[in-house]
Design a protein around this nucleic acid. Structure first.
Lengths: 167, 167
DNA sequence: ATGCGTGCAAAGCCTTTGCAGTCTC
DNA sequence: GAGACTGCAAAGGCTTTGCACGCAT
């Protein structure tokens, strides 16, 4: 692949630079290092995951900085913040915000696997509702909870159910 | 109105009774009192709201009992638990689960107002996705975030924005 | 040089848990 | 009477905050 198309990370870095400049915020090395880590991942990670990853990457930052930077990145659209109410009430999970179309999530209530999907009808609903309710819709969060068909997950769940029945 | 149609509360009480019996749980007065409070409200309340309301109702229960009972009520479908990721990460908000069709929420990012709406297309998406992804979808959570058009909210937001610009 | 950003640890908030006493079954 | 449920307070997990130091501007 030629370099004529800038990588996602490069685009993100430029966008962050622009945002910091516009807001009069400082371009600290921590902010760019964290951005890099975020854009090297393809999963839905929480703040602690990111904190640990930065330490393994031998760019140790404090948790405070992780939280602070994530807020900046969310604010400029480079990171998306999700509140999945499945396993853990309190924990937020993040994902990169560039280079992916709007999507929704499917979460297995047993193994907590997260699957992404897109459906154009969601956009239609958004438009209709905004219009009907006189509401400026800016973003959405659609999550379906259910049971996935992964072999190991199903097996484990069946075993657990059998256990529960014996009570 | 005649009593031939049992009230929502009565229906809920019966359902709870049935559930407790089936599960071999005890029919404590706290559980029924909390159910009554829940079904007297039409809003999206959190655990603390409920705790306070019970004390004003002079049926004082502990927070532990509030949380315990809410879990029971969620489990038997008499209460719905929402994780709105707007104002506060950690707080769950609850609403009664009977006598209302499946719906989604619209949340104002400024005043945190919660509006409910229904759209049949959501059901279609659910069906399609479940089929495509081989996933047994059990429940959903759809939230749109945006700005509502309430007069006071708009005024307050404009004032806040003006303040921010002067920085 | 100014003062924002970072790191550390402590505090905060919502929620869960442990233990003793109480009430349902 | 047995043990599940409640109340209280303490602990727990994630996140935010206060303060001192360091770095970008």
């Amino acid at each position: 692949m030629l370099d004529s198309t800038p990588s996602l990370l490069t685009t993100a870095r430029n966008k962050l630079e622009e945002y910091l400049l516009k807001k009069g915020l400082r371009r600290s090395s921590e902010r760019f290092a964290i951005l890099e880590e975020v854009y090297s991942r393809d999963d839905h990670f929480d703040a602690e995951d990111l904190y640990q990853a930065m330490h393994q990457r031998s760019f140790a930052v404090s948790r405070a900085t992780v939280y602070n930077t994530l807020e900046v990145l969310v604010d400029c659209g480079l990171v998306r913040k999700n509140q999945f109410g499945d396993e853990d009430n309190t924990k937020s999970r993040f994902e990169k915000g560039l280079g992916r179309q709007q999507h929704a999530h499917l979460i297995c209530v047993n193994c907590h696997r997260v699957i992404e999907f897109c459906d154009p009808r969601l956009q239609l609903i958004k438009t209709t509702v905004g219009h009907t309710m006189q509401f400026q819709v800016e973003s959405h969060s659609l999550v379906f909870y259910g049971e996935c068909n992964d072999e190991m997950c199903v097996a484990r769940t069946k075993a657990a159910a059998a256990n529960a029945n014996s009570n």
